[in-house]
Simulated assay, not measured.
Amino acid sequence: MGETGWTRLLGSDFNSQITWLALATLVGLIVALCVAGWKNRQDIRRAVAIIFGGWLIVTWLVFSFMSGIFHAYYTVALSPAIAILAAIAETLLWSRRKTSWAPFVGGFTTLTTSLWAYSLVSTASGYRALAIVITIMGAIATIIMVGFGIQHMVSVPRETSMSKFLAYLAVLLAATAMISGPVAWTAATVATGHQGSIVSAGPNSSSQPGGMGGAGVSPGLEGNGKATSNSVFPNA
């Protein structure tokens, strides 16, 4: 079940279940708060950041430090907050693309998320090629974004058809690199038959028949994961 601590979900037992966009989520939270500011309390961006940021932080900390039984599928509770904040990161960075800081932040987010995806994807058998493609797409997108950032620092660039093409290309490559891992893990999960009560996602993991006892078959559970009445309820 992993050792408790704030990095618990980054460990091998849970990282491929929920942490694909963890950094992009954090960037979305910070950027939303910085762009919205604290003066206008009615700013929808600020409200969304506070709501889903609070959801993310509280749930992450609960899962990180809770003791007792903790299964990987519990982390699905983080999915809405991660999805919203990662989308906020992409949207706000794109809306600020003509500034000098947004391309650098976008490049940093893309590169680190791609490298993290590489580390997760490459652990699965048969997914080495996908891991390499993710890294290449992330690197190309990062180079383009950093180039835009440097250009904006030097002068105010004139928007041309080529610059528009490169901007759209960078966003397309970045988005593809960041979601390829989750999409591949989703497809592998859908294509894999699951039985029992301990479910998990990804090509290397199928659900185990155990329940309260963690991995393996728990005492009083048959091989198909169903509890026998005389073992779970000995007095029945």
Rank of each mutant, 00 (worst) to 15 (best):
N40G: 02
N40M: 08
R41N: 13
R41F: 14
Q42N: 15
I44S: 03
I44K: 12
A47L: 15
V48L: 11
V48I: 15
A49H: 07
A49W: 00
A49K: 08
I50R: 03
I51F: 09
F52P: 02
G54H: 06
L56D: 03
I57Y: 07
V58T: 12
T59K: 10
T59R: 03
T59P: 09
F63I: 12
S64Y: 00
I69N: 12
F70S: 04
H71A: 13
H71Y: 04
A72H: 10
Y73F: 07
Y74P: 07
T75D: 10
V76E: 00
V76T: 08
V76K: 02
A77H: 08
A77E: 00
A77W: 09
L78E: 01
L78C: 05
L78V: 11
L78K: 05
L78H: 01
S79P: 11
P80S: 01
P80L: 09
A83G: 07
A83H: 10
I88W: 04
A89T: 14
E90Q: 11
T91L: 05
L92H: 11
R96N: 02
K98Q: 09
S100L: 14
S100M: 13
S100H: 13
S100E: 14
P103S: 08
F104R: 01
V105A: 08
G106D: 00
G107S: 10
G107W: 06
F108R: 02
T109Y: 05
T109E: 01
L111F: 13
L111T: 02
L111G: 07
L111N: 05
S114C: 03
L115R: 00
L115V: 11
W116N: 08
A117H: 04
Y118I: 14
Y118P: 12
L120D: 00
V121A: 13
V121G: 02
S122K: 13
G126W: 12
G126P: 05
R128Y: 06
L130N: 08
L130M: 12
A131G: 00
I132P: 04
V133T: 08
V133S: 02
I134F: 14
I136Y: 05
